[in-house]
């Protein structure tokens, strides 16, 4: 083997190594449907339940167990009224009358924009992207006088129990956040009335 071919071999080898290093350490993403390889899976998968995992121990394969019937988890809140209990809602839902500080209103804005705006739109007028795209009719304009006339307790009831096509949001929005949403909605209505 002469010197020239040795050099050539060396250059090819170096190029190969440089190529592998540059490709593998780069930000190229290789998509794969198979789970990642665990080289040393020592304690990565322990014999315990982690939230939102499957579990072969139970017949229904749920790690998160359903609450025992007739019980309420500690600290959990449930909304007991049904959609029809409108009179009860007026007396049961006592407005905590939190001070409408900037923080409270912006919290209400945040929650409104996250949970209400997909249908009611950011300005509460009901022409959201979802509504327009789906050609939904009947999403109410929340700034109209009929809605403005509803009491805070009644709106709390609607958020918590649902109304017509709107499902209950009691599981998603905490009671205190529901009140902040109402305060924010009032400010939207006031802005619109002026």
């Amino acid at each position: 083997m002469n010197r020239k071919s040795l050099y050539a071999l060396g250059i090819v080898g170096l190029a190969l190594v440089a190529g592998i290093v540059s490709v593998l350490s780069s930000r190229t993403t290789w998509f794969s449907e198979s789970p990642p390889i665990e080289v040393l899976p020592n304690l990565d998968l322990q014999f315990k339940d982690i939230p939102q995992s499957g579990n072969t121990f139970f017949a229904d394969r749920k790690s998160l167990r359903d609450p025992v019937e007739g019980t309420v988890a500690r600290g959990a809140t449930t909304y007991l009224l049904g959609q029809g209990d409108i009179e009860l809602a007026e007396t049961n839902n006592v407005d905590p009358e939190i001070e409408k500080s900037a923080f409270v209103l912006s919290r209400g804005q945040n929650r409104f924009n996250v949970f209400c705006s997909p249908c009611h739109n950011y300005d509460a007028k009901g022409e959201s992207i979802v509504a327009v795209r789906g050609e939904w009719a009947g999403i109410p304009n929340l700034t109209r006088p009929e809605t403005s006339a509803l009491s805070n307790s009644r709106i709390f009831h609607i958020i918590s129990a649902g109304q017509n096509l709107m499902p209950s949001y009691a599981d998603k929005i905490s009671p205190i956040d529901r009140w902040t949403i109402i305060y924010y909605l009032r400010s939207l209505q006031n802005n619109n009335a002026q």
């Binding site: 592998i20 593998l24 350490s25 990642p36 390889i37």
Partner: peptide, 18 residues
């Protein structure tokens, strides 16, 4: 080199798209 870099999470985990 291939095995060494494949063990990195950057290559082993990123791009997992089930």
């Amino acid at each position: 080199l291939i095995v060494y870099f494949s063990m990195w999470n950057d290559n082993a985990d990123v791009g997992y798209r089930p």
